[in-house]
Design a protein around this nucleic acid. Sequence first.
DNA 1: TCTGGGGTCCTAGGACCC
DNA 2: TCTGGGGTCCTAGGACCC
Length: 371
Amino acid sequence: MVTQVDPGDAPARRWVLHVDLDQFIAAVEVLRRPELAGLPVVVGGRGDPTERAVVSTASYEAREHGVHSGMPLRLAARKCPDAVFLPVDAPVYDAASAEVMATLKAVPGAVVQVLGWDEAFVGIETDDPWAVARSIQAAVLERTDLHCSVGVGDSTVRAKIATDFGKPRGVFELTRDNWSEVMGHRPTTALWGVGSRIAARLAAHGIQTVHDLATADEAVLVSEFGPSMGPHYKRLGRGTGTTTVDDTPWVARAHGRETTYQTDLVDPREISDALGLLAEQVVEDIRREERACMRVHLKVRFAPFFTTTRIRKLAEPTFDAAVIAATALDLLVGLGDDRPIRLLGVRAEMVPPEGGYDPPRTVGRGGPPAR
DNA sequence: TCTGGGGTCCTAGGACCC
DNA sequence: TCTGGGGTCCTAGGACCC
């Protein structure tokens, strides 16, 4: 099922809501350890801040000390020595996430597109999207004890961006009526899908703000980013990206495992064993889904920090871990680089289902559950 | 401080075929 | 001797998100 926002001038009746749990992982951990409430909590890796790992989520108390997602745990420990460090416990977050999503799907008339553990789009036809947003917050809190913020928009991009302005525990509305006022003066990185690299390329053409991008010469964007991404970025600048909320169950395109080693790998035997282990994990995962591996992706990070990937299509789709491991090893040897290895990843690109993927590939952010 | 692990999608360019 | 277009398939690499 798909809902479409009315693009015309009539008052919109269909809305896109973006629901985003507040500090989701940290909040779930506090729920099962109430004594942690109000303390700086940092969840990441195996919970040992002396290891090579990064922060998955920090509680607001920890964020006040400058700790944020993606930061190395060691640095987080320096910035906030009193923080409680906890290991990532994915099954617990899966369960909590499922409760949240079930709550959203129970909203009458809602079409729910899951974006990750802690966020989803909700497409809905209503006269009062704020009332729906408030009722969603209340229902989620009642059922899961978790707080969320809601972005209300007339497109997915606007709803998604609106949520940040509502955090924590709030609601914010972003539509074509206030888009320019709220977003126009902000840097292009404020947009969903524009990171530092794209922003730098835009800046080289004098495009600094969202307003600059919205009014940019499309020919310039096409020459810089190509016929597909160029117009896509212009649409982002205007906030008029896709308007559909699609609850088609997501079918993964690929599945992989990667590991950062606590001590760098140098011994060839050790390296080959590591690839074998990763391949076995990948096969176990894809066998569960009954999806054979079609291509092998090798990812390797040499110390100190050079990362590269290699791909090879297999002659035959396979579930054979030995074939996958041997292919990955062959790709690695082909690099002819004997520096110490800090990370290895093996990814299986899987045979597409009959008739291809639905939804098909699209420009911009497609919608996989990111976790 | 020394940078995780899980994903998706786009573009460029070479090889190859007609 | 040099070289047309058009198409597909494949790999490498970049960029982004949570």
